[in-house]
Design a protein around this nucleic acid. Structure first.
Lengths: 186, 186, 186, 186
DNA sequence: TATGAATGAGTGTTCATTCAT
DNA sequence: GATGAATGAACACTCATTCAT
């Protein structure tokens, strides 16, 4: 990707999270990126196109982060834990991207086409869960409820360790995962 | 409260949730409320004062909703469940207020003074949890993590039933609570 | 005059001089006067009517101040000096009224009708001068130039003693008058 | 200077003199200058910055006008007369700039920093006068009083010839100067 | 007579977007 | 591709004025 385009995406990510879509002006994005205002509109036709690009970009980064070390051979719990931990660490370490996804997931600025493009790549998650349910390791609950619970506990954990970064260690992280696992396991 | 002031709060609540703070113009709020733009500024000195008033108002409504039938005499689990269910029902039924609190909880438009005013009334939650922990019914985990997990599972559940309202019934709601309870209990 | 009406005139005088006509809001005038906004509009149909009333009022006060001890019997110079000193003292002591007259003398907010009403009472000044000229005590210069010179030197003197109030004494005041008198006398 | 910036200064000068600072809207200035409202704020951050720029600009023009043909070699009276006449002609011919300086000299819209910047260049006036006083050609009166008298008689003269332009000729102008000179000379 | 809530046109200023260079 | 001056619609907020009490 063009260097200035990447600078613009980085600046926009930071500012959109901090001040929202309408709270951030294109001139401020350009200034933060260190380019002229006109340059922004060379790379993105409109402000909306910029935020949609950003949405696809951050979702892609999330997908990479959570599937980087996926190993189908493993046990269900290990595999799930790996996924959960990767997601949670992404939330803590790539705070801006994680926040961005949460805030703009259900915002009107992201077109449904963009959401669709981003979502298709996440469908494997459900498939994966279904296997676990069929294997009877976890409770018989609707797929969608499971996904929500999965996300909700990650949300809790990210929030907790963001507010108390000094408590972030393997032991506490495992404790947090156990809250989730004991909730869903039979 | 003055009738027009209440109309303005209602309109602002709906619009801020739908389109964000900067995405909602004061003239739109006034029009939605059915009053003149000047009237908004007669009751609230600035747009910021309006959203701060709204924050205090919604937090107050939440507090009323979750503590309405509190009974100290009950068992820890029943009491916790009652709280969890009240909160979750508030999230589903008073969707706008619930969303508003979530969205603007960590927004820069709400002043720290306002947050402080609102938060003091929620301190009992922690006190309540501490009793349960001391009674050894639930896992030994930091207070703050417990609160986050409590809120995270409510978040999951509200999201789920909002997306699938046809599945909202006592049985499914109990199932959701069990995900939470089995997570935290020893 | 009604007490609240007088309070409003006083407040308006002070504020109009300080911040100008458009720079002063009717609500600020009312607040400074200690009355409700509606009350202002009970006594003055519009803001313009208020400033026109104020113009007539201040001009009247000026006229009273400069003619209070007029004595036709005196010599021309004594009489002129008396007038000049009264005017100058008015400018120093009733600073707000003096400033108001200067600022709004040629402003579009004062209607020509108002100016006419105020001016008719000042016509004696010219008559008075004509006598002096005929008596050959002072230079043969157009009436209107004389009036301007008269006002200009008062303007100088008021400015000077307003900036340096500690220098205000009879000797210095006489020196200032001599600048004027030596200028016009033959 | 940028062409549109100059157009804006010209329009603002005319309108501020005519209708005052608050009486003139930025949109009217832009329209009069023939540019878009946004353009005004592209060149001047605020309306205040515009009027401050204007103040520096008009003072600079005045300084140029009154010192253009200064010749130290001349006699005190000739030199003073030249200065007095230049100033007076500036007042009559550059009426808007002259009026602007008078009106906004003591207005709260001009910051003290701006006044300071403008004033430093006028200090030579006083130095010049001191020489005359030391040479005993004119009365022993405080510097500051002399300056005020100087300005006051210019004020008179400008007013007179502005109201009676048909009387403007060398003879009458010399008569006016004599009023001033006979006032200050021994 | 006095009040102050209500009005809506108008204000200073911002901002996404365009376009000539 | 990159720039930044220029645009004008839209924004938060103000204000003279009205009117029911």
């Amino acid at each position: 990707m063009n260097e200035k385009k990447q600078l613009l995406l980085n600046a926009a990510l930071k500012l959109f999270v901090e001040k929202g879509f309408h709270g951030t002006s294109t001139s401020e994005i350009a200034k933060t990126a260190g380019v002229a205002t006109g340059t922004l509109f060379h790379h993105f036709k409109t402000k909306q196109e910029l935020i949609n690009s950003l949405y696809l970009y951050t979702k892609e980064q999330l997908l990479i982060a959570i599937t980087i070390d996926y190993q189908d051979s493993e046990q269900f719990k290990s595999n799930l834990k790996r996924l959960w931990l990767n997601f949670t660490h992404f939330g803590i370490e790539k705070s801006d991207m994680y926040q961005f996804i949460i805030i703009f997931h259900s915002s009107p600025y992201i077109t449904s086409l963009t959401k669709e493009q981003a979502e298709t790549r996440f469908d494997d998650l459900l498939t994966f869960y279904r296997k676990g349910i069929e294997n009877q390791e976890i409770k018989t609950v609707k797929d969608e409820m499971m996904v929500e619970f999965f996300l909700g506990t990650i949300f809790s954990t990210v929030n907790y360790f963001t507010k108390h970064p000094e408590r972030l260690n393997e032991k506490n992280m495992n404790l947090s995962f156990e809250l989730f696992w004991d909730g869903i396991s039979k």
